[in-house]
Amino acid sequence: PPDDERKKAEKAARSGNEEKAREILERLGYSEDEARELAKRLR
């Protein structure tokens, strides 16, 4: 489910793995720019 994926992205971002967070968010349908912004904010 998307919620689980989003949680994974948050966890990745918090542990400093912004790249992985961005990949997950892009898979969820965010654009590259949106995903980058979100990954930064989740950190």
Rank of each mutant, 00 (worst) to 15 (best):
P1Y: 12
P1A: 14
P1E: 13
P2R: 14
D3R: 08
D3H: 10
D3F: 08
D3M: 11
D3Y: 10
D4E: 14
D4L: 14
E5I: 06
E5K: 05
R6H: 11
R6T: 08
R6N: 04
K7E: 11
K7M: 13
K7W: 12
K8R: 11
K8Y: 07
K8P: 04
K8I: 10
A9H: 04
E10F: 12
E10M: 12
E10A: 13
E10Y: 14
E10T: 07
E10R: 10
E10S: 06
E10G: 06
E10P: 02
A12Y: 15
A13P: 03
A13R: 03
R14F: 09
R14Y: 09
R14W: 10
R14K: 13
S15V: 06
S15D: 15
S15I: 07
G16D: 05
G16I: 04
G16M: 05
G16E: 04
N17K: 06
N17H: 10
N17A: 06
E18G: 04
E18H: 06
E19N: 08
E19I: 12
K20V: 12
K20W: 10
K20M: 13
K20F: 10
K20L: 15
K20P: 03
A21D: 03
A21P: 01
A21Y: 05
A21N: 04
R22A: 08
R22S: 03
E23S: 07
E23N: 06
I24M: 05
I24K: 02
I24S: 01
I24G: 00
I24W: 05
L25D: 00
L25S: 00
L25N: 00
L25I: 01
L25F: 13
E26A: 08
R27A: 14
R27E: 04
R27P: 02
R27T: 08
L28Q: 03
L28D: 01
L28R: 01
L28I: 08
G29T: 00
G29I: 00
G29Y: 00
G29K: 01
G29E: 01
Y30E: 01
Y30I: 04
Y30S: 01
S31E: 03
S31L: 02
S31M: 05
E32G: 08
E32K: 14
E32S: 14
E32Q: 12
E32R: 12
D33Q: 13
E34M: 08
E34R: 04
A35H: 02
A35N: 01
R36C: 03
R36V: 06
E37M: 08
E37G: 04
E37I: 12
L38T: 05
L38H: 04
A39F: 06
A39S: 04
A39Q: 01
K40T: 09
K40G: 07
K40H: 15
K40M: 13
K40E: 14
K40W: 12
R41W: 12
R41A: 15
L42N: 02
L42C: 01
L42H: 05
R43D: 04
R43K: 11
R43L: 12
